[in-house]
């Protein structure tokens, strides 16, 4: 049983499920972030408080963090195995036609991770009480951070890379789960494009609006 749970296919299966769960969370977060555009900090801070206290969401949060950790762990484990599987490369390069962004998943993933670390230091750890700060007013924290040019640039760059990650991730996850269909697979690919552009764009628009106009 151990062998079957830790086989390459099982790891990919778990990664795909965990990844899809993370994908579901993004629109929720984005919706809350749109409240940052209001001049009244109330709605955003209330939503943040609701997310931090409502019991169902607390369970959701535990699942989310576990999904994130397992997605990262298996991703790195598989990637190391994949590097080891080809000790000597090709002098003539690799010119095969491929799903281009699939080649950089570890790097686009890594940049998202770097962003998450930053994000956790600025918000999540404060909420957990690990870092000092006022957990009651994340609205002002966000507004302040968005106006620091270096932070804004890292933010935008990471979301662009997240988009590249999402594009391959979405179409790839269904194939990994064995869900392949003559009609639906092309539909999923189109959806993946739309999703991979729309979500990062949404986050970026919020930042740019606050950075430039507030």
């Amino acid at each position: 049983m151990n062998k079957i749970l830790f086989s390459s296919i099982s790891k990919k299966f778990v990664m795909a499920l965990a990844g899809l769960f993370l994908v579901l969370f993004l629109p929720v977060h984005l919706t809350i972030n749109f409240m940052l555009l209001k001049s009244d900090p109330g709605p955003f801070n209330n939503a943040a408080r609701f997310m931090a206290t409502f019991p169902v969401i607390r369970i959701f949060e535990i699942v989310l963090i576990s999904a994130l950790l397992i997605h990262i762990t298996w991703g790195i484990t598989l990637q190391i195995g994949n590097w080891l599987a080809r000790p000597v490369g090709y002098a003539g390069g690799s010119k095969s036609e491929t799903a281009f962004f699939s080649k950089f998943m570890i790097w686009t993933g890594a940049s998202v991770l770097i962003f998450l670390v930053l994000h956790f230091i600025n918000f999540y750890f404060i909420r957990l009480g690990l870092v000092k700060g006022n957990p009651e007013d994340f609205y002002s924290v966000a507004h302040q951070l968005f106006k620091i040019p270096s932070y804004a640039i890292i933010y935008l760059a990471c979301f662009a890379l997240l988009g590249l990650h999402l594009y391959h991730a979405l179409s790839s996850a269904f194939q990994t789960l064995g869900l392949n269909h003559r009609i639906w697979t092309p539909v999923v690919k189109v959806f993946a494009w739309i999703y991979a552009v729309a979500i990062p764009l949404g986050f970026a628009i919020i930042l740019i609006t606050i950075w430039k106009f507030r």
């Binding site: 062998k3 079957i4 086989s7 390459s8 296919i9 790891k11 990919k12 598989l78 195995g81 994949n82 080891l84 599987a85 080809r86 690799s94 095969s96 036609e97 491929t98 799903a99 699939s102 080649k103 998943m105 391959h168 179409s171 790839s172 194939q175 990994t176």
Partner: peptide
Amino acid sequence: MVEKMDELGFGSCSNTGACEAE
């Protein structure tokens, strides 16, 4: 077959599609 494939040191599938193209 999958257990043997993993044991022999082949990598995992990234759904890159180079195999199908070639």
